[in-house]
């Protein structure tokens, strides 16, 4: 591990995995690893971010990501404000910028934003003076999810080199998929995408991943199987004809999992649709399911992200005169 409080990130925002260097990623994962240990001890509270303010701005409802950021910030001693921002009927770009201006006037140090439009976090980052963490922008990126997935894998497998990771399901609408493809490929894993053609974006091979429409073939020899959530409204005939057909051909059950390598790990960013993309018999089996562990890693990884960003902040706060 590098110097205890040396800089880890080159930028004051975490907008995506695309911009991250291997050193930055490794630095974050190392730091997160130390927080995993701390979180498991009785003394979980630290004063690292004492006096700092973190604002959670979620334009899309998300219990788990928002709580994870809140808990991470609180464990580091920061003040947390959860802004409830419903979707407004007025032009979204305008609303977002108006909100940004309002927020900026409150002088927070870190802004965590989730928005249904791709590029929202980046737009905000250009308009506010604080650090911005992208907690999901449309179908673009969700960097902390990919980082926590990487942390989970690294703790179980040691390294990424040569690992076969099969990401299965709704790749088209998934920011989790995009961030993971980019991040895991950077780390040396061999990424495969498994989905029906209707759930694969155009020219998805540009990411350098192997594409499979047959799940048996896609899972053959996989070290990690990462399932994605399929939104209910997408399985009524537009992208997929029905939930039962989806489960039959793309739902992870024990039989399909048998194609993967012995000792395979099963992951899911949650929340799960049981009986649609994943069978309970797989999701709940601690022999290969690390789904709960991902949640635990999420808090530690987000603490590391906040810590790393805070290292770049002026002592008196980002917005101090």
């Amino acid at each position: 591990m590098r110097g205890v409080d040396g800089p880890i990130l080159r930028t004051s925002h975490l907008l995506g995995t695309e911009q991250l260097s291997i050193d930055e990623i490794t630095g974050l994962l190392d730091l997160a690893g130390s927080y995993v240990g701390l979180n498991r001890t009785g003394d979980r509270k630290h004063a690292l971010l004492k006096g700092r303010t973190l604002v959670n701005m979620f334009f899309e409802a998300s219990t788990r990501t928002q709580s994870s950021f809140e808990l991470a910030a609180k464990r580091l001693g920061a003040d947390v404000l959860n802004m409830s921002v419903g979707t407004s009927s007025v032009s979204k770009g305008e609303t977002l910028l108006d909100t940004a201006a309002t927020l900026n006037a409150m002088r927070p140090d870190i802004l965590v934003v989730r928005h249904h439009d791709a590029g929202a976090a980046e737009l905000l980052s250009r308009k506010v003076d604080c650090c911005v963490v992208n907690a999901g922008d449309g179908a673009h990126e969700h960097p902390t999810q990919a980082l926590l997935d990487a942390l989970t894998i690294r703790r179980r497998r040691g390294s990424f080199e040569g690992l076969i990771v099969a990401i299965c399901g709704d790749i088209l609408h998934s920011r989790v998929a995009r961030s993971n493809i980019i991040l895991l490929s950077k780390l040396g894993a061999q990424v495969r995408l498994v989905a029906p053609r209707t759930l694969l974006p155009a020219r998805v091979e540009c990411f350098g991943a192997e594409i499979h429409t047959d799940m048996d073939r896609g899972l053959a020899g996989a070290d990690i199987v990462m399932m994605l959530r399929l939104q209910l409204e997408r399985m009524s005939g537009a992208f997929v004809p029905s939930a039962r057909e989806y489960f039959r051909f793309y739902g992870l059950d024990r039989e399909k999992l048998r194609r993967a390598k012995p000792g395979v790990l099963v992951m899911h960013p949650g929340p799960m649709n049981r009986g649609i993309e994943i069978d309970s018999a797989v999701a709940d089996n601690i022999e290969f399911s690390v789904i709960q562990e991902q949640v635990e890693m999420g808090v530690a990884l987000r603490m590391a992200v906040l810590d790393a960003l805070a290292r770049g902040l002026p002592r008196d706060g980002r917005n101090a005169p």
Binding site: G237, P241, S242, R244, R248, F249
Partner: peptide, 15 residues
């Protein structure tokens, strides 16, 4: 190819 031949939502082609 589409349910009830309504031209709106695809059928369960796999099944």
């Amino acid at each position: 190819l589409t349910r009830r031949l309504a031209g709106e939502s695809m059928t369960e082609i796999g099944l």
